[in-house]
Write a protein that binds this DNA or RNA. Structure first.
Length: 255
DNA sequence: ATGGCTACGATCCGTAGA
């Protein structure tokens, strides 16, 4: 089973690239973030024609997440149960024997801002949700845009980013707390090329300079991690016409 | 020191992303 995550930065604008990438990469399950549309504007039929069922938690203009799957999706749950939040950032579904959570974690804007405080509160709620899900499901995968670069090697210029939002100590501690529910960062279970990133700024030729961050992640509990064969980033997609600022990030699990 | 691009929604600029 190939499981991927991609922040598409508008599903309407990115549909052609998404269809091209699906045909090329042949993933079985895909978590999408930043749909920027309500379910009514979601291209369900086009994706069905490409062979994928969709579960959608949409929102106008901002946020919005979906899970695509070739196999049927069941036990769909939107948002973080018990956490009051108007922003559509979370969607869970079961595919085969794997519980899949799609997450679009808050950006945080700037350290100390109101949005930063929201980001930390949101991560605490996610942590509790993951702990509960892990207790309920033998195999758990959490995939999405976490908006945290876990270590300095996940940052193109750690000195320039020091203390900034996405790398600040409280955000990295919040990331660590997610792992401590019993999850592993699949990407780091393999030798990986240095300076592998999943996001590059649209400005200042960020992609051409490889001025990026690794902020899109796939977390697995130990049972799911035992099936892990490969992990990577489809970096080329960031160089396509009219790209998202994120590249698809994926893992292969043994069947 | 700032903004640099892209998407969106209601315009011809503000908000947001990271």
């Amino acid at each position: 089973m190939k499981l991927a995550t991609w922040n598409v930065n508008s599903i309407k604008v990115r549909l052609p690239q998404l269809l091209d990438w699906l045909a090329q990469a042949q993933p079985d399950v895909v978590c999408l973030q930043e749909l920027k549309t309500e379910a009514a504007g979601y291209p369900r039929e086009a994706l069905e024609a490409a062979g994928y069922a969709s579960a959608v938690n949409g929102q106008k203009t901002y946020n919005g997440v979906a899970i695509l799957s070739r196999a049927p999706l069941s036990a769909t749950v939107a948002d973080i149960p018990g956490f009051e939040d108007a922003q559509k950032r979370v969607l869970a579904a079961t595919v085969g024997d794997v519980r899949v959570l799609c997450v679009y974690c808050p950006n945080g804007q700037a350290v100390g801002s109101e949005k930063y405080e929201y980001k930390l509160r949101w991560f605490a709620a996610l942590r509790d949700y993951l702990a509960a899900e892990r207790a309920q499901h033998p195999q758990l995968a959490v995939a999405g845009d976490f908006n945290v670069a876990p270590e300095d090697r996940d940052v193109h210029d750690p000195k320039a980013w020091e203390g900034q939002v996405h790398v600040s100590a409280p955000e990295r501690a919040a990331w660590q707390a997610l792992l401590e529910t019993g999850l592993q960062d699949s990407f780091r279970l393999f030798e990986q090329p240095e300076k592998t990133f999943s996001w590059w700024d649209y400005r200042r030729m960020g992609f051409r300079r490889n001025a990026g961050l690794r902020i899109d992640h796939l977390l697995l509990n130990s049972f799911a991690a035992g099936r892990l064969e490969r992990a990577g980033v489809d970096r080329d997609v960031r160089g396509w016409e009219k790209p998202s600022d994120h590249a698809p990030t994926w893992i292969d699990l043994k069947d």
